[in-house]
Every structure is written in C-alpha cells, then in structure tokens.
C-alpha cells in the first residue's frame, strides 16, 4: 500500500500524477490458481467535488500510474485520493497542490 503523488497548479489547472502501490493481480497466473486482487474504484476529490472517477480492472498494470488534470484549483489546495480493491481493502490520502 502507498500512494505517491506529484500535483502542480499552473494558472487554474492542476495536473496530478499518481503512483499507487498495488499488485493488480488478475488471478489468472499459474492456470487461474492465484487470487484476484485489483483496485476497482479510485476517486480524487477537490473540495468535496469529484474531479477523477476511475473504475479499473486487473487489466491495469501493477502499481498503477495515473495522470489527469482538472480546472478550478489553486496552490495550497488539498485533494483527497481514495481507492478500494475487490477484496474490500481501501486507502485514502490527502495531497497538497504545489
């Protein structure tokens, strides 16, 4: 588990790059004997509004890299990254925009 982030604001547009530590296992390895464990919902909120809403599957690579941008941000604002996987595990992290 762990979320690394680079989030920068230029004018009023925030560009966010995330690296989430997660196996993203399909459960197909070794003839389907492995256990499926992948993030199936990831959101980023800015001041209560959802600015990124993603429904991944195990077809997203291990330790997912995600890049997006949104409008209406300023330096010093906080965004909240949250994800949940198919086993019910979740993680939440606040990130300050630079």
């Amino acid at each position: 588990m762990g979320i690394k982030a680079i989030a920068k604001v230029k004018h009023d547009i925030a560009t966010v790059k995330l690296l989430v530590k997660h196996p993203m296992a399909s459960g197909k390895i070794g003839g389907g004997k492995g256990e499926a464990k992948y993030i199936n919902h990831l959101t980023v909120k800015h001041g209560g509004r959802v600015v990124y809403d993603m429904y991944p599957t195990s077809a997203v690579s291990k330790n997912p890299y995600i890049k997006f941008a949104f409008k209406g941000a300023k330096k010093g604002d906080t965004i909240t990254v949250w994800w949940q996987d198919n086993t019910g595990k979740s993680e939440k992290k606040d990130i300050k925009l630079k």
């Binding site: 399909s26 599957t57 997203v60 890049k67 997006f68 949104f70």
Partner: peptide, 19 residues
Amino acid sequence: AVTWELSEGTIPKFSTRIK
C-alpha cells in the same frame, strides 16, 4: 479494462498503463 466517469471541471484526458 477501465471505465471513467466524467465530471465538470475534469479535463477529459487521462493517462495510465495497461496489460
């Protein structure tokens, strides 16, 4: 592989890595 729901203020251009 992935579905994104889009909302106001979000710029609809996303990057990631896929299998």
